[in-house]
């Protein structure tokens, strides 16, 4: 995922701060109950996604495909089965009302904005810098941070092992069998070897890390120093003004006549 083509100012924002602000935004977004606020807010977040992640547009659109699936499937069950009074459509157990329609669309936008905030963070933050920042700014214990970084390094080895097992299955002719059962049998043979090998490897690495005093609670020095810069201020002011703008737009140019989507 992480192939930044060109770095923008968003890449230079302090990672721990960025995570904290997004966490606050998550809580804030859950308290938005007005569709008229939700739509402009989603737009301001998507500006960051389109202009500041530094990815080519082709990649961005590929990323968006599953997000739209999320949008539709999240809104659909509320639209079809939600509570409401003004009936628009009724067929069997399906009961679409005006209220449930707006609420469903609102939930879809909510899911979309969470997805956009998450992917924007991931595309603009290097995991290593994030964990260094968490250790330096939020005082996360080094044993947790370094364990995480080691575990991330182990992911490619896990994939390699997954391929090895699949190749072994092919050699033994398991892939020529058709049907759901043989597919299940192939999947069933995966978790135990993958897990047991990972645990063995993790154990060996942990012993080595303990020998190198990664366990110690004493003050450490860091190879990377992650600090604050004016980009942090820029990020905070962008977020604050986008929230302000959303509320202003909602009161001046409401798109829909509903105010609160809750029943």
């Amino acid at each position: 995922m992480n192939t930044p083509i060109k770095e923008s100012w968003l890449h230079k924002v302090n990672p721990a701060l960025k995570l904290l602000i997004l966490a606050i935004l998550f809580v804030f977004a859950v308290t938005i109950h007005q569709l008229n606020v939700m739509i402009p807010f989603t737009l301001t977040v998507s500006i960051l996604f389109f202009l500041c992640t530094g990815q080519p547009y082709r990649n961005l659109f590929l990323i968006l495909i599953p997000f739209f699936l999320v949008f539709f499937s999240t809104s659909l069950s509320m639209i079809l089965f939600g509570k409401g009074d003004t009936t628009l459509f009724k067929w069997g157990i399906i009961h679409v009302t005006e209220e449930s329609l707006y609420r469903g669309v609102h939930l879809g936008f909510r899911a979309l904005v969470f997805a956009l905030m998450g992917i924007t963070f991931v595309l603009t933050t290097k995991p290593v810098k994030l964990f260094y920042s968490l250790m330096q700014q939020l005082k996360l214990q080094p044993k947790y941070a370094y364990s995480f970084m080691a575990a991330i390094r182990l992911i490619p080895i896990m994939f390699e092992e997954f391929k090895t097992i699949r190749d072994a299955q092919k050699v033994r002719g398991l892939h020529s069998e058709k049907g759901v059962w043989s597919k299940l049998k192939r999947i069933k043979a995966l978790p135990i070897p993958l897990l047991s090998q990972s645990i063995r490897r993790a154990f060996r690495i942990a012993v080595a890390m303990e020998a190198k005093r990664f366990n110690s609670l004493q003050e450490r020095t860091f190879y990377y120093q992650v600090g604050f810069s004016t980009y942090d201020l820029l990020f905070i002011s962008y977020i604050v003004s986008s929230i302000g703008l959303s509320y202003w737009l909602a009161s001046e140019f409401p798109l829909f006549p509903v105010t609160d989507v809750r029943y």
Binding site: K143, Y144, F148, A151, A202, F203, A206, V207, M209
Partner: peptide, 12 residues
């Protein structure tokens, strides 16, 4: 650290 690393590797 051993417990932490093994837990995190399983979780990842």
């Amino acid at each position: 650290l051993t417990d932490i690393l093994v837990t995190i590797v399983i979780s990842v």
